[in-house]
Design a protein around this nucleic acid. Sequence first.
DNA 1: TTTTATCAGTAACATTAGTTACAGTTCTAT
DNA 2: ATAGAACTGTAACTAATGTTACTGATAAAA
Lengths: 210, 210
Amino acid sequence: MLEDLQQHYGYLFEDELIQEINKVGVVKDIPEGAQLIEIGDYIKSMPLLVSGAIKILREDEEGDELILYFIEQGDTCAMTLSCCLGSAKSEIRAIAETDTKLIMIPVEKMEEWLAKYKSWQQFVLQSYHSRMTELLEAIDTIAFLKMDERLFKYLKDKAMVNHNDVIYVTHQQIARDLHTSRVVISRLLKTLEIEGKIQLQRNNIKVIDL
Amino acid sequence: MLEDLQQHYGYLFEDELIQEINKVGVVKDIPEGAQLIEIGDYIKSMPLLVSGAIKILREDEEGDELILYFIEQGDTCAMTLSCCLGSAKSEIRAIAETDTKLIMIPVEKMEEWLAKYKSWQQFVLQSYHSRMTELLEAIDTIAFLKMDERLFKYLKDKAMVNHNDVIYVTHQQIARDLHTSRVVISRLLKTLEIEGKIQLQRNNIKVIDL
DNA sequence: TTTTATCAGTAACATTAGTTACAGTTCTAT
DNA sequence: ATAGAACTGTAACTAATGTTACTGATAAAA
């Protein structure tokens, strides 16, 4: 774990803090598709993203889903939660988009470190700020883009976080993420293919115009 | 200012902090309709909301607006900004919904107090969390509700923050806030009136079904 | 190999939202 | 008092999105 920490967080945290994280942190390997957080969950530990990517979803009362954004390995924002502090319930669902490696940190330590380490405080505030920005971008996407634009953005984002221009996903799954119907997605995908932006195959889509 | 502070923030902050705020804070009275923050502004002071209400808007490249939420006097979340710390540009526009009284605090102090006062730290984190929740609610509204539901919610929210079931606003202004056209709003308002949920007058709307 | 389930394509239609155009009303300024 | 501006109502139409229904293709299971 120590190498991971030094490699991904060494430039952010002072040595002493890295040591502390090394002491109390628990490494978790999450397979693709596994659910990390469910809506309503109480969060008792905070994940630091070491590698992989996570998909963040919102859901309404009727169970309709909507993707908010992906959290990437490279992101400074490794914080999946706004709820760690204040021990509130999770408002979102988190699913591993790829195989993912996390370091879990107990909430108590989080709060302790806020007072103790300036770099930790900076990190937490910075993470909040990033998540805020991501939420605003999600709003832009939903409010200002039409479905075909949203779809193409989704495909590009997904290709990005998977480091692969071929996306293995069904039309039905896309429809769920974008909160629309399968038929609509099939229709728009076909149009994107005719425009030369993607290539369609059963169970996968190749993004051309990245 | 001291009374305002003690009344609205006394239960949150220790005396010593209240005194500090009293020393460096500047009271600002903002008339209804005045713009507090523009997109792209650098924020050099953070507002504590003492009385009134503020409307938070997002805008895309083409200048299309969209309301995100109102910030109310009663809200624990008096923080209008995610950008104070880290001196980032504002991503949103803030407009006084009613006559509003603020206490402005310089950014330098904000950061200083984070280390110094536990209660301040709690307040900042709590505020981030509230704003997060508000953004998620905004997403729910845009993503999961149809325009007629969004409109009615908007009217109810507006009546709420104005402490008045009669809203003084034109159809065109509503259309701008909800990012649609005036004709659509007029049409849906008429339907709501027929359903007995509102009463329409020139330049004002009475919300019946609060 | 046959059956079954999943997936994708497409047509036809319904609903919602956005646009254009115009008329009538109310307010404001001259 | 009158002209002009702002506001609202409504019709007619277009565009975007959602729904239903059915098809053939492919993959997985029996």
